[in-house]
Amino acid sequence: MANATTGAPVVQNPTAREEAVVFSARGLSKVYRMGEVEVHALRGVDLQLFRGELVVFLGPSGSGKSTLLNILGGLDVPSSGEVRFLDHDLLSANEKELTRYRREHVGFVFQSYNLIPSLTALENVALVTEIATRPMAPIEALRMVGLADRLHHFPAQLSGGEQQRVAIARAVAKRPDALLCDEPTGALDFETGIIVLKALDFVNRELGATTAIITHNAGIAAMADRVIRLRSGAIVEITRNARRAAPEEIVW
């Protein structure tokens, strides 16, 4: 892993390699107004993610991990603070610029796959490569996730794990700089979950895209370069694994 570096927040570790920083956030806060109640989803988060690393965000529901991922992915904007992706200022970007940012730089994997049911596996991937600037061939992306023999199957003809692997192929086919996964194994059983994690691990290593996985499944933390734990909208701990465990070794 080329850019496996120390991963403490910037303020704590001023020696971090600046050129390898992909995401940087400072003082990120997000306040939702739910009726008359203010919900502080994030409370002053400082964070850096580096090129090519695989980070697992761990935390119970309500810890703010999803909000953080949404902000990094350009789906939501913080209430205050700074957030940058390379040279893009995600705070001041408008809707159009955010769409463009997601299109060019980010791959998403959803908990519930969200494939287009009327398109085959191959077509689902091709849909995204059509609008990408430097994509890989859709077949290649599906081969990476081990689905070269399921190209012409519709989502309804695939198992949950297979659908999620198609979703991963769809996310990586555009060669994104960042791959953001929200509970990618949340809807899967253990064995299938492992297969999906293997696919994520493989594409992270192959493509070098900064990969963020949010989960409340602590077992997954073992396969990360770094593990960031959140609670009540704040980062409570950042740890670096001495060794990234292979997905096959993970148990939960």
Binding site: T99, R100, R102, R103, G107, F108, N114, I116, P117, I131
Partner: peptide, 14 residues
């Protein structure tokens, strides 16, 4: 709606 929203997330324009 859900299918279209996911495409919007993936960077498709409105």
């Amino acid at each position: 709606g859900r299918e279209l929203a996911s495409l919007r997330v993936l960077g498709f324009s409105k």
